[in-house]
Nucleic acid binder design. Structure first.
Lengths: 179, 179
DNA sequence: ACCTGAACACCGTTCAAGT
DNA sequence: ACCTGAACACCGTTCAAGT
């Protein structure tokens, strides 16, 4: 009943946030939409392309973010985190298209903060790689070692540092104005 | 004929560097070893565990690296890069075990360079996330947009920055001695 | 102890054929 | 134009049964 690209990506996003990337399969999508698997290929060229489109949609709200580079990257984290294991997805999407929303906006924000154009480009590349690595790590850890009992920690052992603190600390170092 | 954990991981590493992660399947491994798929499960509890072991083996040489933090991270890159898409693998392995070779050595190297212990830990976490994100990006790009003709570039467009330059630049900023 | 055969519940993608 | 049915070539994992 009126299958469309919009319906497919919406369903994919729903599966992604409810069950994670490994449950976003073409067949699962088809089942969810009450349609034969092959039907999807009339609207979408491949799974990879579909996921790229989904990533674009997810990051779209960033285009309206008025804040500076730090605000942009913090909002980036908040958009990505709820999508259980979308970190891998974004790593792929960014490799395919390095102008993905946070990346395309960063150079300008950095120039506004006093960076020279060439340095702004370089720093954008560095910041994006850090952010993607940090988010993928944070999501993987949440998925793989879930619900660790607080009482069970070895007292002297290095405590697992809060993911947000690490993220902020990295950004702070990388976004510090050029000396 | 004498299947063993060593034989299995060696074959996995060979498949990984020859064909990439997506060709390292339990069934492909079994075919390569002339054995039924189920036989592998007598020696290995799961694919995930197998890949974790493989990652450990790959990073083992780092334990003998005598250089400073920068040398360590540059060697890390050289070990990982040849494994076509091992970046995703390492992201997973690191999430499972944050004491993976480069990470377990970094805090000491940083303290030797004048960092306070707490800052050394924090910086280790940040550097690892950057490195993993950078390597995954570099490998994904190599796989997805292969053999771009040099002559085809738009002259005024921002050139694709060399991955190594970005990697070094990020490390330089993150490893700069605390002010 | 170590392995096979067979099964279970899945994948992405293609394509003739139907409406 | 849009979708189905069926196929092709795969997955990870389990487990009774064999040696």
């Amino acid at each position: 009943m009126a299958l469309s690209l919009e319906l497919i990506t919406a369903t994919a996003r729903s599966l992604l946030s409810q069950y994670g990337l490994q449950d976003v399969s073409m067949r699962r999508l088809a089942r969810e939409l009450d349609v034969a698997p092959g039907a999807l290929y009339y609207h979408v060229p491949s799974k990879q392309e579909l996921l790229r489109t989904v990533a674009q949609e997810i990051l779209d709200p960033l285009l309206d973010e008025p804040g500076d580079a730090l605000a942009l990257m913090l909002r980036f984290r908040l958009l990505v985190l709820p999508l259980r294991d979308a970190g891998d997805l974004l790593l792929l999407a960014y490799a395919l298209d390095t102008t993905l929303p946070p990346a395309q906006l960063l150079p300008q924000r950095l120039r506004e903060a006093g960076w020279a154009p060439a340095e702004a480009e370089q720093t954008t590349a560095v910041v994006m790689r850090f952010a993607l690595g940090a988010l993928a790590t944070e999501q993987n850890q949440a998925l793989l070692q879930p619900a660790q009992p607080v009482t069970g920690r070895a007292p002297g052992a290095p405590q697992a540092m809060a993911a947000e603190r690490i993220y902020r600390h990295g950004l702070q170092r990388l976004l510090a104005p050029p000396r």
